[in-house]
Amino acid sequence: MSIERIFTKPPSAQGQQEHEQVLVIAGAGIEGDRYYARHDEPGQNITLVEAEEIEAFLLAHERPYDLSITHRNLVTRGVRLNDLVGREFQVGDVRLRGVELCEPCAGLGGMLASPALSVAAAVKHFVHRAGLRADVLSSGTIARGAKVG
């Protein structure tokens, strides 16, 4: 039960950036991420997704291995994120609160669609499996390999 990969997308960047570790600020999220200090939606501080769900999608649709495809910040392994909705939990030394499932939208569907896979089918695949939105309750550093619990 750990963090396998860490991604951010700076406000001015086109693509995502991968990190070995990131600074996380209570009530604001990951420093430098496009959603840092924004409060437009609940749980906007940080997003998590299960590596196993991404891998299932990639295998089912014969896609190259890429754990960044959902554009979530933290990719976990061995953690059932749906069970963390409404609960406080730790990622390394940082405390988070699971706010709600990060359900797929047409934007994600559009990024994942292909000639063989419609936007609707991509969205349907990730319903209840696209991750978790969370609030950051304490500041600290989250590093690759950090334990989740």
Rank of each mutant, 00 (worst) to 15 (best):
R80H: 11
G107Y: 15
A121C: 01
G32H: 09
Y65P: 09
Q90V: 00
T70E: 06
L101Q: 14
V24R: 03
P115F: 00
V75L: 05
G15R: 13
G98R: 01
S12Y: 10
R72L: 06
V119Y: 02
V99P: 01
R87N: 08
E88A: 11
E88N: 14
V99D: 04
A121F: 02
E50F: 05
C102L: 05
H39S: 14
D83K: 12
R38Y: 06
V119R: 14
D33P: 02
Y65C: 06
V119H: 03
H39F: 05
E55K: 14
V24S: 06
T70I: 10
H61W: 13
F89K: 05
G92R: 02
A121W: 03
L117C: 06
V99L: 09
I30E: 04
E103R: 13
V119Q: 13
A28R: 15
M111Q: 14
H19D: 10
M111G: 11
R97G: 01
R38M: 10
M111L: 14
G92P: 06
Q44I: 08
R97H: 12
R63D: 00
E18K: 10
E52V: 10
E88F: 00
E52M: 05
E20H: 12
I25H: 08
P42E: 15
H61S: 07
R87T: 08
Q14S: 13
M111C: 06
L96T: 08
E88Q: 15
I69T: 12
A37H: 11
R95G: 00
E31S: 09
E41I: 10
S114T: 15
R87I: 00
V22T: 03
M111S: 15
G86Q: 12
R77W: 00
L59D: 12
S68Y: 07
E41N: 12
T70G: 06
P64M: 02
H39A: 12
L101D: 00
L58I: 12
E20N: 12
T8F: 03
M111D: 13
